[in-house]
């Protein structure tokens, strides 16, 4: 069981560019000490009188103990909408509100097994902590990171350092193998005799990885990304159809029961719907 989440004010220590991303280092006393691979934090946007009422979720990329600053977190920001753009413009000494660590972490194997780690875009962010933990346990770690283009591949050099092997893919062939992560997956799995696949990235990538894992009888864990309003389990916006231990499908909150799910338990093709056999699904449509 992971530690209880807390709410703290963090001070930004550094903002560094990395391709099309920004890596933000922020003090997070009490969060960084208990954070586990795969967990995330939410960051308050825009200051006290902001019109952005919702926090944004970011995977915990690294945790460090930095002397006088105490524990710090590194987050990888992909500026896109209003909030992520605002956050990418923060500077040293700015403060932000943090809540975390949130969500369930990746499950780690008890033995030194052979693992493949797959990251799509900024989805490689949480894989560093995971790779380190797996290596500590003597696991083989083969990493694959992919993106549309070189600019969007995150952290190839750092991940290479903690991996047994690393393959890069880009859709446009600007770096590494031209194609998708799933195009090289079979080769990597065969060479490494893979027991577990860990994946984080766009939902379409996760769906393909999970399908591959199921057909090859490999255990998989995927970190999903669903739109979240609260991130702490109180609002029910972040749900997706998950098959439970009892084989029953339920609409499950990805912020508290995820974001890490077994690949074979997510009904990938049904995301964005409520499958008719879901627990509590409408028996009949409201007459209109």
């Amino acid at each position: 069981m992971s530690g209880r989440p807390i709410q703290v004010t963090g001070e930004i220590l550094d903002v560094n560019r990395s391709g099309s991303y920004y890596v933000i280092s922020v003090t997070a006393p009490g969060i960084s000490e208990i954070a586990e691979p795969g967990q995330f934090v939410t960051v308050g946007m825009g200051g006290d009188e902001t019109s952005m009422v919702l926090r944004r979720a970011f995977a915990i990329h690294r945790v460090q103990s930095r002397g006088v600053y105490g524990g710090t977190l590194d987050l990888v920001i992909s500026p896109g909408g209003k909030g992520t753009t605002w956050l990418s413009k923060r500077r040293r000494h700015d403060t932000v509100s943090l809540v975390g660590p949130l969500g369930k972490p990746f499950t780690l194997p008890t033995q030194s097994v052979s693992c493949v780690l797959i990251g799509g875009g900024y989805g490689s962010a949480p894989l560093f902590l995971l790779a380190e933990k797996l290596r500590e346990r003597g696991c083989r770690v083969d990493s694959i990171i992919g993106a549309s283009t070189e600019e969007k591949l995150f952290g190839a050099l750092d991940l290479k350092r903690v991996s047994t092997s690393l393959v890069l893919t880009t859709d446009d062939g600007s770096l590494g193998v031209k194609g998708r992560v799933t195009d090289v997956l079979e080769g990597v799995v065969t060479a490494g005799k893979t027991d577990i696949i860990y994946a984080c990235g766009p939902m379409s990538m996760l769906a393909n990885v999970a399908e591959f894992a199921v057909t090859h009888r490999i255990f998989s864990q995927c970190s999903v990304e669903e739109s979240m309003a609260c991130g702490i389990g109180v609002c029910m916006t972040c749900v997706l159809p998950i098959i439970g231990d009892d084989s029953v499908t339920r609409m499950v909150r990805s912020c508290v029961e995820g974001p890490i799910f077994r690949g074979d338990r997510v009904r990938w093709a049904d995301i964005g719907t409520v499958p008719p056999d879901t627990y509590g699904a409408p028996v009949e449509e409201v007459s209109t």
Binding site: A229, T237, G272, V274
Partner: peptide, 8 residues
């Protein structure tokens, strides 16, 4: 079960 996503 509630409604389909996106819900917010």
């Amino acid at each position: 079960s509630g409604r389909a996503t996106p819900r917010m």
